[in-house]
């Protein structure tokens, strides 16, 4: 699949939350778009990703 423009490979049935955590993302500070649509944070644990998907991930930093 594509994650932030880079090709990465995931196993079938991979959960989005597991993959994000494995990449070091802190879920509550992260916005995820799956194929152009924002995934509500409550839905991230039940969302399954595959190699045809495209993810855009933002890990927000504090300050404003």
């Amino acid at each position: 699949m594509k994650a932030n423009g880079e090709e990465v490979s995931v196993a079938d049935g991979t959960k989005l939350s597991d993959w994000l955590i494995s990449q070091g993302y802190v879920l509550e500070k992260t916005a995820v778009l799956l194929n152009g649509v924002v995934v509500p944070r409550a839905k991230i644990p039940e969302t399954v990703i595959s190699n045809t998907d495209c993810l855009e991930i933002v890990s927000f930093v504090g300050g404003g």
């Binding site: 916005a31 933002v58 927000f60």
Partner: peptide
């Protein structure tokens, strides 16, 4: 989005996109 807390920033993305 003009918060300073990163958790609130993520919350806003979710809410406003809907």
């Amino acid at each position: 989005e003009a918060f300073d807390d990163p958790t609130e920033k993520a919350m806003l993305v979710e809410t406003v996109s809907a």
